[in-house]
Amino acid sequence: MMNLQRLFGGRAKSAPVARERLQILLAHERGLRGQPDLLELLRAEILAVASRHVTVDPAKVVVKMDRGSPVSMLEIDIEVPDAAERCAAAS
């Protein structure tokens, strides 16, 4: 059956697939364009808030975003040194 279809109907059209993939991708990419980098902005502000209360190493603040459907996940990972390290850092 497939062979007959190939013979007479030609292959499935690939251009509509290309068109749809592009429309979805570009809608997403255009949305990101022009804005300052959202994650970098979040990282800077979270770092500022956290360091008001605890001593944090800027390099140890990780902000990640997983875009998905139906929900996206924002993951914030801040490593806070323990008391001994804090004392060492303070002295």
């Binding site: 030609g10 292959r11 059209k13 690939s14 251009a15 509509p16 290309a18 068109r19 592009l22």
Partner: peptide
């Protein structure tokens, strides 16, 4: 190839 649906058509590219 565009007529056969194997290549994006002019209208597709213009619309995108």
């Amino acid at each position: 190839r565009a007529a056969r649906g194997e290549m994006l058509s002019i209208d597709d590219v213009l619309e995108i």
